[in-house]
C-alpha cells in the first residue's frame, strides 16, 4: 500500500524558543481516515503547518505520496488539500468566488473551476448561498465553505484541522457523512479534533501527540482494546430499591438515582453475562450508554501517563 504521508524526525522550534515539535515520525497510508489527537498546544497545527509549508520546520523530512515536499514542491501541493482551524478566506468575497479562486491557484481552467465549485457547494449545502458575501454565513457554513475550497482541486490527501469546532451536532453529523463519503471515494483524510467521539466514529488509525511528541500511534481497534474497563449508565423504567450485588468480582455497581445505576465492567467480561445477572435480580433495563467516550478515557490516560514521565 502507498504511503500518503511520511514524516521523519520532524522538529520545529519557533523564533521565541518554543519547541513545538521535538522529533515526531508518522506514517499515514493511502485511503486511511487518520486521527491526529492531542491537547491544545500539543503540536497538531504545527505539524499540519509544516506539511502544508506554512510553517518552516527546523529539521526532519516530510513526504507526500513518496515525494519530498522540498524537491517536489508543486506535485506534493497538488496532492494536498488543507482545511485550517481558523477561518482564512476573504469575508468580503462571494462564496462561489472563494472556491473558484482557489481552483484557479491550482491551475484549473475557469470552466472547470466553476463546475467544481458547483459540485462541492451543492454537496456541502451551500449552493443556495453561492452569491452571498462569505461574512454573512453562519459559523458552520464557513467551516463547510473551507472544506469545499480545499476540495476544489480534488486532492488525494485532505487534512482537516478541527473542522467541526463550534458546529452544532446535526451539522457535525452531516459533515461526518460527507467526509466518510469522500474517504470511501479514495481520498486519504487526516483529522484533528477535540471531539473524541468524532475520531472514534470516523477514524481507523490514530496518533496522539503531546508536548511535541507522538505518545501513541496505533489502530483505533487496538487502542480501544486496551481499555481495562468500561463504565455504563443503565436506566430502569421502575425504581431500583437496592444496589444489586453481582456474583462477579470484576463488576462494580453504584446507584446514580432511584431509576439509574452505574456499572463498571472489566475488560474480558461479557456484557451479556451482566445483563443475565440483572435479569436474575429482577432489574429491568430500558436503556444503556457509555458513561464517557471510550476513546476519551484512553486519551486522558495516555496524557496522564505522559505527564507523569
Amino acid at each position: 500500500m502507498t504511503t500518503a504521508i511520511s514524516i521523519t524526525d520532524l522538529k520545529k522550534t519557533y523564533a521565541n524558543g518554543f519547541e513545538a515539535l521535538k522529533g515526531i515520525s508518522l506514517e499515514v497510508q493511502q485511503g486511511d481516515f487518520f486521527a491526529l489527537l492531542g491537547p491544545n498546544g500539543a503540536g497538531k497545527s504545527t505539524t499540519i503547518g509544516v506539511i502544508s509549508t506554512l510553517v518552516k520546520r527546523s529539521s526532519g523530512s516530510v513526504k507526500v505520496f513518496g515525494k519530498n515536499v522540498d524537491t517536489h514542491i508543486y506535485d506534493t501541493k497538488l496532492d494536498l488539500g488543507v482545511v485550517p482551524q481558523e477561518i482564512n478566506f476573504n469575508q468580503f468575497e462571494r462564496v462561489q468566488d472563494i472556491v473558484i479562486t482557489q481552483a484557479g491557484y491550482y491551475g484549473l481552467p475557469r470552466k472547470l473551476a466553476r463546475e467544481r465549485a458547483e459540485k462541492y457547494l451543492r454537496k456541502l449545502g451551500l449552493w443556495e448561498k453561492r452569491n452571498d458575501r462569505s461574512r454573512l454565513l453562519s459559523g458552520g457554513m464557513k467551516r463547510r465553505l473551507m472544506i469545499a475550497r480545499a476540495l476544489a482541486h480534488e486532492p488525494r490527501l485532505l487534512i482537516l484541522d478541527e473542522p467541526t469546532a463550534g458546529v452544532d451536532i446535526e451539522l457535525r453529523r452531516s459533515m461526518w457523512e460527507f467526509l466518510t463519503e469522500i474517504n470511501e471515494g479514495g481520498t486519504t483524510i487526516i483529522l484533528t479534533t477535540h471531539y473524541l467521539e468524532e475520531a472514534e466514529q470516523l477514524c481507523r488509525n490514530i496518533a496522539i501527540i503531546d508536548e511535541g511528541l507522538i505518545i501513541e500511534n496505533t489502530s483505533m481497534r487496538n487502542l480501544l482494546e486496551e481499555l481495562d474497563s468500561q463504565t455504563f449508565i443503565l436506566d430502569s423504567p421502575v425504581e431500583i430499591s437496592a444496589i444489586p450485588i453481582f456474583n462477579f468480582e470484576d463488576v462494580s455497581v453504584c446507584k446514580v438515582d432511584s431509576k439509574c445505576i452505574e456499572v463498571t465492567i472489566a475488560a474480558g467480561r461479557n456484557v451479556n453475562e451482566v445483563f443475565s445477572e440483572l435479569d436474575r435480580l429482577g432489574i429491568e433495563i430500558s436503556s444503556m450508554r457509555n458513561k464517557t467516550n471510550r476513546l476519551e478515557q484512553l486519551f486522558m490516560s495516555r496524557l496522564n501517563e505522559n505527564g507523569l514521565k
Binding site: 506554512l54 506535485d75 481558523e86 482564512n88 476573504n90 491557484y105 491550482y106
Partner: peptide, 17 residues
C-alpha cells in the same frame, strides 16, 4: 490585509511559484 486576515495562506498552500 491578506497577511492580517491570513487569506494569504490560500495561495501559499497552492502550487504557485
Amino acid at each position: 490585509s491578506q497577511k492580517f486576515q491570513k487569506t494569504i495562506e490560500e495561495v501559499l498552500v497552492a502550487p504557485v511559484p
